[in-house]
Nucleic acid binder design. Sequence first.
DNA 1: CTGAAAGCGCTTACAG
DNA 2: CTGAAAGCGCTTACAG
Lengths: 348, 348
Amino acid sequence: MAARAGVSVGTVSNVLNHPGQVRPATVEKVRAVIEELGFTPNANARSLAGADSRTIGLVVVDLRNTLFVDIARGAQREAAAEGMNLLVTNSDSDDSLQDAHLELFESARVSGVLLAPLSDPAVGVQRVRRHGTPLVVINYDTGREDCCTVLVDNERVGHLAARHMIELGRRRLAWVSELGALQPVQQRQVGVRRAVREAGRGVGLTEIDTQHVDGSHARTAVERLLAVPARHRPDAVVAVTDLLGASIVQELQEAGLSVPGDIAVMGCDHDARAWGGAIPLTTVRLEGEEMGVAAVRLLAEEVAEGGGHVHRTVVVQPSLLVRESSAGRVPVPGPTTTRALGSTRRGV
Amino acid sequence: MAARAGVSVGTVSNVLNHPGQVRPATVEKVRAVIEELGFTPNANARSLAGADSRTIGLVVVDLRNTLFVDIARGAQREAAAEGMNLLVTNSDSDDSLQDAHLELFESARVSGVLLAPLSDPAVGVQRVRRHGTPLVVINYDTGREDCCTVLVDNERVGHLAARHMIELGRRRLAWVSELGALQPVQQRQVGVRRAVREAGRGVGLTEIDTQHVDGSHARTAVERLLAVPARHRPDAVVAVTDLLGASIVQELQEAGLSVPGDIAVMGCDHDARAWGGAIPLTTVRLEGEEMGVAAVRLLAEEVAEGGGHVHRTVVVQPSLLVRESSAGRVPVPGPTTTRALGSTRRGV
DNA sequence: CTGAAAGCGCTTACAG
DNA sequence: CTGAAAGCGCTTACAG
């Protein structure tokens, strides 16, 4: 095709892929023609002929959750640094869509796949592994030995949250969450329980099941709270997600209670979707970008090392972000101490 | 390969693509082997051999801006409805990355490309068009006749915003924005000016240039506001984005002014990133999902109609979302009127 | 340094 | 209904 410009296809291919092996004058000439014709090589043919795609596919469970956007950004940045491209797909919490996306990437023969699933992705992972495509699972502990994993220390998430409430002087904690099958949720619960146990006598824990991790059942949860006589009522709520936490704040206010006066509330995830409420929500922040970077590094290792690769797990640590819903309206800091929007107190 | 299971490759291909033309028993047999071997057809070979990819590429300027996540979700939903897959790429406000992503999709020979750019994407668009790949530009009016476009009525965005402030009784409006080259910004400004003009005598407008559309120069803008003697000072600020609006709220509070008491503030975009401030921000909401759906429809039309396609522009209407930063703390609605988080008053 | 040839895994007419 | 053949646009050895 573009070879019409004097040389053979083989030579065009060489100026594209191994310009060092071609006489400079020829390189010039070919490049000029490429430019002139606006030639874009067919990546499909390229891949078929054996070149690797330099493309990574990322399947994410929910792009509205800013954690996953952060993961995508971190992954993108690191991919670019390694000379690769990142393609993102949103499964929107739909397991069958997730499998379809995995298969889409598989069929495109990408160099590797990153998967941030909602629940155990066993079937999908197995399929991908069967083809020998490198795969890194993000934010879910599969317990598998056959792929790398990037995890949040979810037990620590729960522990940081509950301990924060205890340190604020709260004594009757409530853990409000889906109490069923979701793994990160269970781990957070373990952390919450441990913090309460460590606090010793005088600190108690109530667990309330909302069936869902979003805010859809916040009302029922709040009704449960209010059914308890005021003096035995929980004075602190740790919600499994920000979405649920924010809804609880809203329901409590509608019921005439003050937050954090009567009941302190916090969520987990640092999810921007939940930031629309009247009271800024305390949360435990997950470091998404760091997770994305780590995932691409693991993937690149596996691509480079091939069969001899030993699978690893990287655990990223969360951090506490204190805002009004637990600590009350924080005095506005002086001009010299705040810069970025939302840079409230942060630390353990 | 899988043809090892009794039949020829041609037949395997037929059961995959035209199962009607194959004897049911053969279809059964082949499918069983496909299942058994975990066979995933090579999409690259498929595409090379002339089948179309059924894949759409979406290049988005900034995934942290929830508008673009909404666009991606709408596009995804509509793509699925048309039996296509959506691949998303985030250019992170980097024009050269954006061009690289366009080229990536081009080289993959996707069925069509969706582009949500920050500024005039002329070069990239031209390249894509040269190859004859269908392309729809989202959220930017290129003025080109050679592709379809999905736009927000940005003049209306500005008009809704300014009129809201005027209807609230504010008389000295400030339009705070980058006042330079960005097209959507200019259009919003036109709308703001028109609303002020329509309000007649007694309503005035000050325009303050922040150089950027994010919150980075909010402080300087606020200093400019405060330099004006109190009785002539603007009593309403319309910021070009929520990010800027939220930062202005914060700066005003740090300066000891009350929002909306002394100065009402609002943003535009309905951008979740800006929702972390102490006061929920009034905004003009852009209907991202609707935009994504419209874009995929236009693309599908063009794919179906081929060369005879006539390019069109679809304009999506914004809506006002009133919250505390302009209207004050809204009385908490009764249990029967609120459901979803953040469902505050909404309408013209 | 450059060209001609084989082959990547498919699909699509075309014979049988 | 099924198989054999050609061809999609590349890359990679291999001759020259």
